[in-house]
Design a protein around this nucleic acid. Sequence first.
DNA 1: AGACGTACTACGACAGACGTAGTACGTCTG
DNA 2: CAGACGTACTACGTCTGTCGTAGTACGTCT
Lengths: 113, 113
Amino acid sequence: MVEISSDVIRGYTDTMILSILWDEPSYGYEISKTIRMISDGKYVIKETTLYSAFSRMEKNGYLKSFPMEDLKTGKKRTYYSMTDAGRKYYIEKCEEWELTKEVIELFIRKEGV
Amino acid sequence: MVEISSDVIRGYTDTMILSILWDEPSYGYEISKTIRMISDGKYVIKETTLYSAFSRMEKNGYLKSFPMEDLKTGKKRTYYSMTDAGRKYYIEKCEEWELTKEVIELFIRKEGV
DNA sequence: AGACGTACTACGACAGACGTAGTACGTCTG
DNA sequence: CAGACGTACTACGTCTGTCGTAGTACGTCT
């Protein structure tokens, strides 16, 4: 069973989170469920990784947190929304990804080659 | 200028090195030049990163080092060659890469989308 | 009553990448 | 012929992101 190593994901958890926040604000638990769902269970972000990413990104000005009540349950949650800097950062990371992918693939052998 | 962040490469430097050692043994400086050449200057591995990867991989049994004279210059160099475990590891990393790439791309927006 | 899901926070460990520095030797250049 | 530069490392310490462990709190389900 091939598994994704955290060393590869490292540096892209932020991008995943921002990708989800692009359209609308959300909060921790919901984001983690969304990531699991989108990746079809192939990647499950650890809680500590998630919340440390939040505080890092808020410190860097990519996110803003605010308390809000969950629309469905009415419970108080800590929501996060993207800032303009966050959108810019996300777009840059997407460009960086294309380059990184290209470079790494120069050193990868496809199955059967 | 988009640059590759070390957090993404993290965990794939080993794979790059092994990729170069697949066909024939080589030594530090030569490997670093080869990586720079293959990636067309897009990725330049730091010396410390390279040599710490060597000792890590030798400890893990993926590489074996031996002293040998450079065929061109006749100078003594520390050569590294892949073990069977190294080849197995490299193949696994290539498979892992395919999965990782798939997952990350689910969170990446292509230019203009 | 206790398990489980939800929703966090705090603290510390770990590993890989990197910065800085130093050594040594040979070649090239002004 | 002195100094810069390329080659070929080694040693040591720092930083950062991920993750393990643990704890809190509240609601639902069985």
